[in-house]
Amino acid sequence: MIAATRGVLLAGVGGQGVILASHIAAEALLRCGFDVKQSEVHGMSQRGGVVTSHLRFGGQVASPLIAPGEADLVIAFEWAEALRWSSHRRPEGKLVSDRRRILPPVACLDRRGWASAYPADASALGDALVVDATAIAREAGNEKAAGSVLLGIASALLELPEQPWQESIVATVPTKTRAANLAAFAAGRTLHFPAAELAAPAPPSPPLVRHRLEIETAWCKSCDICVRLCPERCLTLDAALKAKVVDPDACTGCRLCEMLCPDFAITVVSEEVAVA
């Protein structure tokens, strides 16, 4: 009988080694005797964006792509990516994730409310297996071998023999990091769950204040310092070359302009806003 097709989705952040790990896995699955198809997307996404790789294997594989809700296993290299791709699992599918957090710069951008868009709530992950793969890899000799820790876990979850995976690591990774990757794989393979609690620390809640600039126009000598240094670019010089607020809503109340103005022409007034 032809073995049924199974799907493994790997996801992480550009630069984490997702593609290398998926090449190791594909090679290992071939060595296990399966037909394997793999599909990855790189290019723009390598610049710190999301990287995914689809792996499908079995007796004979048609499509290389895994439809949402059809992955037998999702391997996430990063916490937010675990959330993003968790719904690609089958109801009985598993999810393994590194506990590593990589906060994308955009999530730091709402400086006003500075609520980070980074997920803190773990409940959506259900029965995910979350490990500190990066720490385990560090112990094995190289932090960058976290992918091999995850592959070790995956090989056990997929109930596949370990030897083809080891052979694949030897064949695929550079000689310099071979020992560390093999050790990392072994550590992952023998890991016992439950390994750790899930929740990431909750972010502090944003303050409810509104900021307003009082500009003493007579004192302003058009030096342009506030305009150039306002992190939010709220200020400009008007036709009379006096400082003027153009974007009051963007002001985060950092007081930089107040501190930098050589003539004390700017005061930042912060007022509490009543909670609705």
Partner: peptide, 18 residues
């Protein structure tokens, strides 16, 4: 087909300069 559950909300991650 049954529509699979929507992915839980998480942070966007556009590519960035190094």
């Amino acid at each position: 087909g049954t529509v699979p559950a929507a992915a839980p909300a998480t942070t966007p991650r556009p590519p960035v300069l190094c």
